[in-house]
Write a protein that binds this DNA or RNA. Structure first.
Length: 142
DNA sequence: GTTCTAACA
DNA sequence: TGTTAGAA
């Protein structure tokens, strides 16, 4: 099938499908007119690519392990493949660290927010939601 | 009408 | 990633 059909079926833009090919994730054959011709498994692979990208894996890693991810009723199932487990664990560790950093940021923001809200002079501003709209503009007084 | 490449936002 | 220009 041609690129427009794959884009419709997968919900992935033509631009992205070409990009995935450029990254070595897909290998559609070329027709005589230069058009890309995708197979059924290509369309399925696109779903797997989306799943792996959503998991945070870089395209370079996906290119290495995509061929050993098989489809099990709509679901991507990674099977034994050199590096598969270590890649997944590495990304898992990365997300854990990111979560820790974000929690620290959240804690710092809570502290800052609490201190700011103790300032009487900012209460009226908060009540009118001024900081959420145009910071520089002032509402005309009735 | 559909796709391609290249390049800019 | 989206969009667009120009060619096939």
């Amino acid at each position: 099938m041609r690129i427009s059909a794959v884009a419709r079926r997968t919900g992935v833009s033509q631009r992205l499908l070409r990009y995935y090919e450029e990254q070595g994730l897909l290998r559609p054959v070329r027709l005589a007119n230069g058009y890309r011709e995708y197979t059924e498994s290509d369309a399925i692979a696109v779903g797997h690519i989306r799943a792996l990208l959503a998991a945070g894996l870089p395209t370079a890693v996906i290119a290495q392990v995509l061929h050993c991810v098989h489809d099990e009723d709509e679901r991507p199932v990674p099977s034994m493949c050199p590096g598969m487990i270590s890649h997944l664990r590495r990304e898992r560790a990365r997300t854990a660290e990111a979560i820790t950093r974000l929690q620290a940021s959240q804690q710092a923001l809570d502290t800052l927010l609490a201190a700011a809200l103790r300032q009487p002079d900012v209460r009226d501003e908060v009540e009118r939601g001024a900081s959420e709209r145009s910071p520089g503009r002032r509402e005309p007084t009735g």
